[in-house]
């Protein structure tokens, strides 16, 4: 277990946390990329998914798109984009957005579709406008599934952002690649532990959020 000891020593050394390529900076980069990508992807995918779920139109396209993107190897997508757009953040961010859209889209439309047909029919029958129906009935009831999509997308982005360090100088993945290049196994393993921890923390937080939304009715008033 000297390997683990090495990694822990590397993690425990304050010198490794400081500076422009220190852990602190890399962690912030990783989180910032993840957050920005999820935000942009959600702005595209959620309205579209809600629209598909509400109108029940185009779900064949959504399913085809989702399974299509899932079969594309992420590293292939990253390297192709990087080759065309150059080394830097543009290529990985674009690739990450492409990868984050399908789970968000699927979560949104599957969530809306899962809302009880009776509740939707009754709400329309008592005189809700389509917009009120979406806002006050479908979205609140679909929220746990939508957050499920968010959870998948977040994990996907955190993971792929690590891989993105192969083509861009950003994120926690840098420690893995620089460790690999310099045969510094402790740095590599330390980096791996950091990424894994980050992923587990986010996964746990989102899982808890999903559970809270599932058990407690999220809305107690407003029409």
């Amino acid at each position: 277990m000297t390997l683990v000891q090495g990694a822990l020593d590397w993690l425990g050394d304050p010198a490794n946390w400081r500076g422009l390529s220190g852990i602190q900076q890399r962690l912030v980069e990783h989180l910032a990329i993840t957050g920005a990508v999820i935000l942009v992807a959600a702005l595209i995918a959620l309205p579209l998914g809600i629209l598909v779920g509400h109108t029940r139109r185009g779900r064949g396209t959504v399913v085809a798109l989702t399974s299509g993107v899932r079969s594309i190897p992420t590293l292939g997508l990253l390297t192709i984009l990087a080759l065309n757009l150059g080394i830097g953040l543009t290529a990985p961010v674009l690739a990450l957005i492409v990868l984050a859209i399908p789970p968000l889209l699927a979560g949104a439309y599957a969530g809306i579709e899962s809302v009880s047909v009776d509740a939707v029919d009754a709400s329309r029958g008592i005189g809700m406008t389509e917009w009120q129906l979406v806002r006050a009935v479908e979205v609140p009831l679909a929220l746990p599934v939508i957050v499920g999509g968010l959870r998948s997308a977040t994990l996907q982005v955190v993971a792929t952002a690590t891989l993105a360090a192969y083509v861009a100088d950003a994120g926690l993945g840098r420690f893995l690649f620089s460790g690999l290049k310099q045969r510094q196994y402790s740095e590599m393993l330390g980096g791996a532990i950091l990424v894994a921890t980050l992923a587990l923390v986010l996964e746990t937080a989102l899982a808890l959020m999903q559970r809270v939304l599932t058990t407690v009715p999220p809305d107690t008033g407003r029409p």
Partner: peptide
Amino acid sequence: YVLQGVGLLPHRT
């Protein structure tokens, strides 16, 4: 309008 499935909103009291 009263429906067989009632269709109450499950997230409201």
